[in-house]
Write a protein that binds this DNA or RNA. Sequence first.
DNA 1: GATGAATGAGTGTTCATTCAT
DNA 2: AATGAATGAACACTCATTCAT
Lengths: 223, 223, 223, 223
Amino acid sequence: MPLPRFAKLDPNKKANIILVASEEFAARGYEKASLNVIIARCGMSKGAMYYYFSDKDDLYRTVLEDFLAGLFEIWSGGADDKHRPFDEVETPEAYWEEWIAHYRRSIRHYQKQPVYGEMFHRCLRSRASGISHPALTDVAEQIREWIATVLKRGEELGAVRTDLPEGLLLDSAFGMLEGFDRWLFQEFANLPDEEIDGIAELVTEFLRRIVEPVSAEPAGRRS
Amino acid sequence: MPLPRFAKLDPNKKANIILVASEEFAARGYEKASLNVIIARCGMSKGAMYYYFSDKDDLYRTVLEDFLAGLFEIWSGGADDKHRPFDEVETPEAYWEEWIAHYRRSIRHYQKQPVYGEMFHRCLRSRASGISHPALTDVAEQIREWIATVLKRGEELGAVRTDLPEGLLLDSAFGMLEGFDRWLFQEFANLPDEEIDGIAELVTEFLRRIVEPVSAEPAGRRS
Amino acid sequence: MPLPRFAKLDPNKKANIILVASEEFAARGYEKASLNVIIARCGMSKGAMYYYFSDKDDLYRTVLEDFLAGLFEIWSGGADDKHRPFDEVETPEAYWEEWIAHYRRSIRHYQKQPVYGEMFHRCLRSRASGISHPALTDVAEQIREWIATVLKRGEELGAVRTDLPEGLLLDSAFGMLEGFDRWLFQEFANLPDEEIDGIAELVTEFLRRIVEPVSAEPAGRRS
Amino acid sequence: MPLPRFAKLDPNKKANIILVASEEFAARGYEKASLNVIIARCGMSKGAMYYYFSDKDDLYRTVLEDFLAGLFEIWSGGADDKHRPFDEVETPEAYWEEWIAHYRRSIRHYQKQPVYGEMFHRCLRSRASGISHPALTDVAEQIREWIATVLKRGEELGAVRTDLPEGLLLDSAFGMLEGFDRWLFQEFANLPDEEIDGIAELVTEFLRRIVEPVSAEPAGRRS
DNA sequence: GATGAATGAGTGTTCATTCAT
DNA sequence: AATGAATGAACACTCATTCAT
């Protein structure tokens, strides 16, 4: 929702504004983030900022939109963001393989763009809070819905249990992924590139344990 | 850390200050919470507040300490907070039963004291964040450590796997519990009292699936 | 006083700029009116506005000039604005008849062009104020002078008393007309067309009572 | 509506704040008036102003209330403001004598407190505008109602005509008084004290001419 | 002729904190 | 032991105006 002028701005400046604002918002949250600081760091005048964005809220939403677009691009496999890799799998095994691939892509992306990771965690944390900014809640909701959709696909393939109240499985699985991510984030500095695959497999295994039907052959337990 | 004078204050007033401050901090977070509002709601003067607490930060820490003490009291089974029920179990089965009991107590407590629940979720959400107040991170860390200790006990009993990097299992399990809690919170209004037991069993089952050794008889899958 | 370029502008655009600006100035007053808003509503660029007008003040004066020209055209009987109907009456009775006709014309005009009415009232209200914009005070002064001239004509015909300090009679009469107008404005929606004549006669009668010489046969009291 | 603390402030400081604020509001109107300027002129800090008043609006209302209280005190004859001198007159002649006395009091007051005059005219001018601040419109409305009440009393005594639509007479008379006032204000510097009586009689005569029943013996025309 | 990006002093408002009493 | 008046830097936001293109 930035004013249409923003689209016409020099791409470098655009990217810089979004980067600087992302950092500030990611580091301090919407409320504490200071527009004055963002403006100063961008080297713009007050008026210029308000020339492109109608207010702090608008800037924030723009930052989040940019983040979400980037995220979904990664999640859709680098192709256009309408591509849904999980729609193409046809067996439970392929389904779980796609989860591994999904995680592999995500981790690689976070390593390259640490700010994305910050934003991502902010979104996750904001869930169900009632306190955080509506736009952030929106983004969190979209992420959650993405996962819900993928779990739905898993249900169709018989890879995901269906005997629990709507939302319970999703929230628990989502929470676990979030926790795993948290650990991952703190280890990023120490994480050798060649371990990424193992990590992706591990988190997928955890996910399986939670969401697989109780009658299924348990993941990672094939004697 | 409040000034020593605070200890000498009339217990009713003490409790009132902490309750009012808890509500404000729980509802709006440290940064957005207004000392002015707290002071007004307590019916005290500005000077009085600063007589007992050196600053906003100090008040916040006091509130959190009180919260944490209350939490651990519940978690220790209502006895003094040095009592550690998990230390007393001697078999894996007893270990899991204690988890169920633990959850049952927690849920009952949240239902009676919603403010505690609010604080709790704030703590959870703040985890691993460079954003939130250090004192909140501290509390979150202590909660995490409590769980870590309990998982350690599980390891000793052979109920918890030991083949993963320190922290990974903890964060994943903690995240799952958090997500489960989140779902629970939204259902509180609709949750009949007699279902609490089932809920406590369910979340424990999820926990088992994540943390049990891979070779173990999987939880909830006994034919 | 707009820059000479304005004269050369396409008449439709000219009229549109003046209309839009009139609305904004009439609705919000000089200070609160936003040039940005006017510019946006006109669909022109910032630069263009400053190409034709040297500043906000300049635009305002142009708008007022246009308003005043239109007003005097009406008051001069629809003919060119040098025509002065009151100069042509030769008896007191004809003088008062002309006042009635004057009012009839004015009311009809306001009904067709509400913006004019708004401007008119703004001018009236600004009278004798150290607050309003000098240009508005100027316009108000010119309106006052128009009435002064007409009263002068009345004095020549013996229809208007001459025994009071310069200005006193004028201000009182002007104030009364203003008050009458105010009432009129609020009743516009409910005012059937056929009552306009009665209204015009009534206000003229009020005017007569104030300004007629004390020895004259009082208006509306002819046994 | 100032915060209750304001009442406890040193009366000199209170009066000073109201005086300074009155001047600024009277001179520039609500919107243009700068709180910063008022604060600086009072020699207070920003915080202090907001300690006593919740916002600009609050300060403005306080100023207006003070003004209105002062005005009604004068109008009630210097006695407490519940005293209504017009209620005590019992004949048309006494009624008109009270108007003269009323005007005499008002003029004397304006001469001593010029700011009151400024405020008064701002109120008058704001009438029926839709633009001005609601609080100002309120005050204007109360003044109008005061006059309406007095005219009503005149009707009861047969001193005021009753054959015109509600409001028309009031607005016309009010407008005339306003215009008269305007003239008066510009002459204040030149007005010798001994002429005040004549002025008060003159404006009352004007009023009579407008509002007296058409059949009555006209004022000031007794051959 | 015309554009629109950029400016920056200005606005009203908040709030943790201090300190004379 | 307690008060509450006072502070002032910081906040988000506005808008008439300029000027390189």
